[in-house]
Design a protein around this nucleic acid. Structure first.
Ligand code: NAD
Ligand code: NAD
Lengths: 215, 215
DNA sequence: ATCTTCTTGTGCTACCTTTCACAAGCGAGA
DNA sequence: TCTCGCTTGTGAAAGGTAGCACAAGAAGAT
């Protein structure tokens, strides 16, 4: 597993896994690269290429065994363990995330939540108590929290992210619309709704003006 | 503007714009490709190349005029108009989005919200009344809604997306963890938290095993 | 046992994206 | 006006990603 796997490959692997988990629940035993491609929005060749980076999991003329491939993908993505997650900022987005049932199903345990608002501290949402920021560092260490989800206002995002990383977080999922400046060995992913909406606007606008070109 | 601009370029343009809007608010007049690159997580050459697809907006030896470049990027991305948006599914995520103040600031007006839950219909959140699904089609037509945000449970996502498109939506922002199957002239972007978390797990795990390799 | 049918795994190719490197150009200051 | 320092815009090179096409191999039918 020495090769460097690209971000887009990892994203696709995650989509394959999502599909495989559904198939497994439906007790489907076998799936072909073509079927997997169709339900994840890619091509059969791409599926096979992606998987081939990690070994040969399929049977020629037959396809892939669903439970086996599922497990292999979970191993590859590092999902055979559970991950402890903290939510930083318990506002609109933060509390939606605390109530998100799929996390536990997928191996993520939200075990802590922090907010700077005194009136929110002590609240219990979905079994998690909202703690003051002063407890961030000891809680990250004690509970071995690896992933921090940033859901504070944009002004506070950099600061709480830095604190989370110093306290031991190895990965950050950032909902605030700002590029975080962190050590390069910390994994960061952004969830920026406005950026996605703007992308959609470009696509719609560009499609429109391309149509004009043809006329 | 005949050339096809890649998705990753559009994403970066959106980041540049975000930065330019902040600089503009701070009344900064000029910015160099290097500064822009630093605050958006890319390289100076990349910034210049991205912009060069659309023309020459800078002054050599000087940099880019912030307000001008901002306007040019807004034109390119199709953001000189306002966009009407509907939220489908007013649950945890849907109501967080309805309360998100940045949308209006960035040119997006959430003008409608729909839910299948009778008890929610008639609620008013952030000035938007929750409507029954039966009103989806007429409302999309009357209010010329171009963008639908899907925030229903995953089981309902495909159906409401299809309805939104039939009713005139040109773009879909999908929060449900499923690949939507829609006409290729509809722009789609996914917001999948679990997928991003899994990506983070891979990065953390891969970094760990790479470190072992060195030992 | 052989043939047919199907699907995988992969080398090769084509395309696309990013980086490099530098001439061209602008403004400030002498 | 001329020179100097700085930054843009861009062709060319490098690096990476996706698609094609087919040999290899497995299972089931005859
Ligand atoms: N609401 C949305 O739909 C939405 C969508 C996309 C992105 N976002 C982004 O997500 C972030 C949160 O948005 P929101 O709508 O939930 O905001 P919000 O105001 O509802 O919640 C923010 C919470 O963070 C807390 N907070 C403030 N400073 C803090 C600090 N230093 N440490 C810890 N907590 C702190 C506040 O007390 C509040 O509870 C923002 O950056 C926003 O831009 C929100
Ligand atoms: N809560 C989160 O933090 C979170 C995070 C990521 C993704 N998601 C995804 O976003 C979607 C919504 O999640 P949520 O937590 O807000 O769920 P939720 O159950 O709180 O809300 C879903 C809402 O959709 C409504 N609904 C159901 N069927 C509908 C239909 N056919 N048409 C219109 N409305 C319908 C329900 O009445 C409910 O109000 C889900 O697909 C979920 O997987 C949620």
């Amino acid at each position: 597993m020495a090769r460097k796997i690209s971000d887009s490959t990892v994203r696709r692997l995650s989509r394959y896994l999502r599909r495989l988990r559904n198939l497994d629940r439906q007790e489907v035993k076998v799936v072909s690269s073509r079927e997997l491609a169709e339900s994840t929005g890619t091509t059969a060749a791409q599926v096979r290429k992606d998987l081939s980076h990690f070994g040969s999991f399929g049977k020629r003329g037959h396809g892939y065994a669903v439970p086996e491939l599922r497990v292999r993908l979970e191993e590859i993505l590092g999902l055979t363990r559970r991950w402890r997650v903290a939510v930083l900022g318990v506002g609109k987005i933060g509390s939606a995330l605390l109530g998100y049932g799929f996390f536990a199903q997928r191996g993520f345990d939200v075990v802590a939540a922090f907010d700077s608002d005194r009136t929110k501290i002590g609240w219990e949402l979905s079994g998690v108590r909202v703690q003051p920021l002063s407890e961030l560092e000891p809680t990250f260490v004690d509970r071995e929290i690896s992933i921090a989800i940033i859901a504070t206002p944009v002004e506070a995002a950099q600061e709480v992210a830095t604190r989370a990383v110093r306290a031991g977080a190895r990965a950050i999922l950032n909902f605030a619309p700002i590029k975080l400046h962190l050590s390069p060995d910390v994994a960061v992913r952004e969830m920026d709704v406005t950026l996605e909406l703007e992308g959609l606007c470009y696509m719609v606008t560009a499609a429109g003006s391309a149509a004009e070109d043809i006329e």
